[in-house]
Design a protein around this nucleic acid. Structure first.
Lengths: 336, 336
DNA sequence: TCCCTATGATGAACCGGTTAAGTTCGAATG
DNA sequence: CATTCGAACTTAACCGGTTCATCATAGGGA
């Protein structure tokens, strides 16, 4: 391996016949460098193939130009089935790329990795941290904020931690979905709720409850964990509890697909016998049988917004809202 | 924001009553430090909450403890439909995490981002670079290798670039799939091929061709780009060209699902009229109607292996193979 | 003519670690 | 008892940039 020696500022300076300081100013596009010198320096830079050493730069500027995105442990488990985190990554990636920042991905969840993340951020490896949908009342975001590290969460943090976040209008989306079912004449509307240690799970269940209450209709709840498998199981237990139910709202698309499978196995027609609505609007929901009616949440946008907010925080933007809530929208297809 | 000043080595040293060098040795777990002193230092570290500054450390060690994973531009487009890149990320992530390395994600493809990636790597921001399935004969991996940067590719590089890589046995997998169709008595076996500027596309088509030739059966090819939509379109054109075809091998699961949809629309039963086999074995293929027979490739394993190989390269492991080819396996379900 | 002020370049301190070379000191050796 | 040696620690150089205080030079005004 021919590890070519990388030229340093010093060498560029020598070649251009100026001082290190001047080269630094040219490289950083500073003003007040005579045109002639600037050219000479640029020529030397090109000839030597000079690229500034990031570590040296960070050491003095205290900036790394990179941002961490923390995924919960569950991402590991669910990744193969779930399209949520990839979309977050994509959205954040695009935004950060535009700002010339790097995206560092970390999995967290276990106590060990928890500590790792904290040390990593504190070591000054990144300029800020984004948390993707956490479980429970995770203390880590708050801890980092207290240490003076810019942080943003996806999903309103549970437990009242005072951390800026980006979220979507779960409640409104669910209300629209349930009202759609009610308007369609459904009387026995059940729900497959998500994990009750995540805002997404909590708020969607709350939306279901409030809307049915408002409509004066009975409620029936089964619990899932956002995965297809859990949706299938939950649907079975709902059918057993109330064979006459005529609609179900699932708090995630994957659970809705599980529910579709369970209904098919139980010989129910969708939407004739039972209407089904999901939440997410993943690509695959357009291709299910029948195509899934669902609440669209702008996941990639969420990633983008998180990145944008975090960049604002890092730059000390004064007029930055603590929270941004993105709209959701009911997408009506054939399943309800 | 209370940006608490982070303690430095100097302060720890002062508190422990020793020199900077000694603290450094304790922190790095070096030998030859008397137990008493070691304890005193550790106490000081804990009391002050000292965490080494990574930039300073990198500056002298020339190591950053992080690794870049480069995704092709298409990842952006396809991400919402595709489960390939997430699995690669997950696999690599797990392995790197175990080695206490960080994963930096970058999108490349455009000329601009190309340059960005090169500069980033050369700036010493990462210790090595992994490329996820590239299009065409990308010169970037070769360039980085020449610059002395450890590199590994997923998928044998096109154009004979001498870059170490990890790939799967496309040919063998496809051969098994096509033989399965032949053994099932299929006589008119078409294929939906992947992009011919990617090894995965090329090798899978080659496997189809060779195996059919061996069986003395006629060939028929349509081209897709691995997405569901392209699979649907390709299937339609295949049906038009040969309404009597009785089997199709799609070079990706998503294209196979598109094909299933096209066949359904055309009134063909699967597998009775037309047998379908895909390639990937994504989670969703277990839940399609009918469940998809497909060639499983160990994607997460590929990510893991890439990471492992790269770490070996970085550590100068002498007995490192240039190429690793992982096995594929036919998974028979109901579609063929 | 002389002094003052921009303008542009330079020298040197500094960021926070690592590590080679040097120092100290007590135990072992001849 | 003098000498050698090795363990344990300190000193100081260095990594490669940024930036502030300083300085040189040319131009303008009194």
């Amino acid at each position: 391996m021919v590890t070519r020696e990388r030229p340093t500022l010093e060498e560029v300076a020598r070649r251009a016949g100026v001082s290190r300081a001047t080269v630094s100013r040219v490289v950083n596009g500073s003003t007040s460098v005579a045109a002639g010198i600037r050219e000479a320096v640029n020529r030397a830079v090109d000839e030597l193939g000079y690229v500034p050493n990031q570590a040296a730069r960070s050491l003095v500027t205290q900036r790394t130009e990179s941002i961490a995105l923390i995924l919960p442990e569950t991402a590991n488990r669910v990744f193969s089935d779930d399209l949520f985190f990839p979309a977050i990554i994509r959205g954040a990636g695009v935004e950060l790329e535009a700002a010339d920042k790097q995206l560092v991905l970390m999995m967290a969840g276990s106590a060990r990795s928890h500590d790792r993340v904290e040390r990593y951020a504190v070591a000054g490896h990144v300029d800020g941290v984004m948390f993707a949908s956490m479980h429970g009342a995770d203390p880590l975001p708050g801890t980092l904020v207290r240490l003076g590290i810019p942080v943003i969460c996806s999903g309103r943090p549970i437990g009242g931690a005072d951390v800026p976040y980006v979220d979507v209008d779960h409640f409104g989306g669910v209300a629209a979905a349930v009202r759609h079912l009610v308007a369609g004449g459904r009387k026995r509307i059940a729900t497959i709720a998500g994990p009750q240690d995540m805002v997404a799970g909590i708020d969607r269940l709350a939306g279901y409850r409030a809307t049915l209450e408002e409509a004066g209709l009975p409620q029936r709840t089964a619990l899932g964990d956002f995965t297809r498998e859990s949706g299938l199981t939950a649907m079975r237990s709902l059918l057993e509890a109330d064979p006459a139910l005529d609609a179900v709202f699932a708090a995630s698309d994957m659970m809705a697909h599980g529910a579709l499978a369970a209904l098919r196995q139980a010989g129910r027609r969708v939407p004739d016998d039972v209407a089904v609505i999901g939440f997410d609007d993943f690509e695959i929901s357009r291709y299910s049988d029948p195509p899934l009616t669902t609440v669209r949440q702008p996941i990639a946008d969420m990633g983008r917004t998180m990145a944008r907010q975090l960049l604002g925080l890092i730059n000390g933007d004064p007029a930055l809202p603590d929270a941004v809530v993105l709209p959701t929208e009911l997408v009506v297809r054939d399943s309800a």
